[in-house]
Amino acid sequence: MKILVCMKQVPQKDAPLKLNESGAWIREDVSYEVNEPDAFALEEALRQREKHKGEVVVITSGPARAQQVLREALAKGADRAIHLEDPKFVSLDAFNTAKAFAAAIKDETFDLIFTGLQSDDYGYAQTGVILAELLGLPHATIIMQIEKTDSGIRVKRELEAGYFQFVDMPTPAVLTIQSGINKLRYATLIGIKQAKNKPLRKVTLAEVQPAIGENLQKIERLYVPEKTKKTEHIEGPPAEIAKKLVDKLRNELRVL
């Protein structure tokens, strides 16, 4: 099985975010990590390869810093990487990001393409499904299990409120992976060493530019959300906070 995994670099979960001068994006001098479901997508691809042989290729689009995500993936066992490298890739909408990916892989065929189910920064929840449509492939979203069958694959989709559903589908196909589908592995020292010699293909913006167009949607303004609820802050040293809280629990909320 030849599997492509889309992996995005996003600001770290607890990184304090500041707006940049444009007021439409953040200041990029924060720490980054791999988008959580994408890490699970990579793990799943590695497990499928271990079972069925084949190749795992990872792809990202973003500035030079995004290469870190690919390096980590190679260290964990991915065979090679593709980096669409340019700071401008950050501001593409999901439609154009998917178009850029489609252009970058046009000379290859994959049995499966994985993306995360959504990104922690934009949270479009769209890139994988758009990519499927652009490539003319069937897709399934929010996947919690993948098994090879005689005619393709059987996947387990997560539905709302604890429901699930199995779906049979042919390959090639695009799947968007949910966090928690498996248990992540760590990179080994040997893996980290080997990663240095694995192929990493760089794709410039100019190469995919003919395939992409203007963004179809635009962020006009980014801001700290307005609070809708009156929140009371309880402050002080821990013992004092505890006293105040227990007082509220007992006398105001009457739950003690």
């Binding site: 609820k229 929140t231 802050h233 309880i234 821990p238 906070i241 006293k243 809280l245 227990v246 509220k248």
Partner: peptide, 26 residues
């Protein structure tokens, strides 16, 4: 904190033990 009625900004490992003690006392 946007939907909290009461907000405690702090380390849960400091707050929770103090709270357990206080609740037990109460």
């Amino acid at each position: 904190f946007e939907i909290a009625d009461y907000a405690i900004v702090g380390n849960l490992f400091d707050i929770v033990p103090a709270l357990i003690e206080e609740v037990k006392k109460a």
